[in-house]
Amino acid sequence: MQCSIFTSGNMVTAKLSGELDHHSAKSIREQIDCEVEAVQPDKLFLDFKDITFMDSSGIGLVMGRYRLMQLHGGEVIILNPSPSIRKVMRLAGLGRLAKIETSA
């Protein structure tokens, strides 16, 4: 599991890759929170394009970052989840907390 973080102006993008589960979520969470707390961006993009597996730990990760972004009025945007990841996100009703954008 890897996470690369890019900051540009008021936007932070975390590009995730590999398998996202309870074990791998912890270090991802710490890396993202460190950047978000320093930058306080308007938008946090979580790019799921290269995530090959995700269970409900991924939902917990998004919900936690949503709460963190809410503290300073920012929003979370989810990019490029695969069909199986979208299935877990739909079950959780994650679309109510974060915009989900899928590229064609």
Binding site: A25, R29, D55, S56, S57, I59, G60, L61, M63, G64, K87, V88, L91, A92
Partner: peptide, 15 residues
């Protein structure tokens, strides 16, 4: 608490 979504059984049931 915090980072767990509380969806484990819901996922097992639905999948």
């Amino acid at each position: 608490g915090g980072e767990r979504a509380g969806l484990g059984f819901a996922v097992m049931e639905s999948f």
